[in-house]
Amino acid sequence: MGAGHGHRLHFHGHSPVHRAPAHLKLLALLGFMLVVVATPRDWYAAFAAEALLLLGVVALSRVPVRYLAPRMVIEVPFAVFALLMPFIAHGPRTEVLGVTVSEPGLHAGVALLVKGTIGVLASLTLASTTEPQDLLRGLQRLRMPDLIVQIMGFMIRYLDVVTAELGRMMVAMRSRGCDPRSPRHWPTLARAMGALFIRSYERGERVHLAMLSRGYDGRLPSQGRS
């Protein structure tokens, strides 16, 4: 069901970034982000160069900014922390717009915001241009232990099945007047989660038996294909 249909963040396309091998994209992302993280916090020219490079890749991938921007809200909690930084850090004080703030804290807050934003946009670019199956094959080529790749494969394959099951349980609960967000209904919610665990576990057992009956010997044949 879930396999081969793309995932929530994937944006279908045929740009050079989409076509690039997944293991190269993974290595590029990791290397790029290590450089970004290692950039000293007051090298603003370096940050500008890194941001331009990333925006160039985004432009090359032809994933619309309108698609990426709303998905960047994931970093909002840390943006709040970055904005707090100038006020909670110590060190010499400086004045910005009439407010006294900590100078190293201000630099750190700006650097955190820049690095975090570059990180989220870079990860989004990988996620929106790479199919999960290609990503798994990429990880396999990068010598990720086979068992981890298999577990990831099963998780990606059954993600939509299990979350849809949870969604149906939630609809059933709501239609009976239960509000899963309220702590008053936590016992009901928890019983639903318990049922979801049992169903997931038993699904795992059935999947394993089905695999054994098709000759599973600890390796997945289709994943070895490149």
Partner: peptide, 24 residues
């Protein structure tokens, strides 16, 4: 034992689904 891949995969999916539930 050899059930690791499918079982851990499904349990990981369950953990992911459980993490989708927010509480105030």
């Amino acid at each position: 034992d050899d059930r690791t891949a499918p079982m851990a995969g499904l349990v990981a999916t369950f953990v992911f689904a459980a993490q989708m539930i927010n509480f105030p």
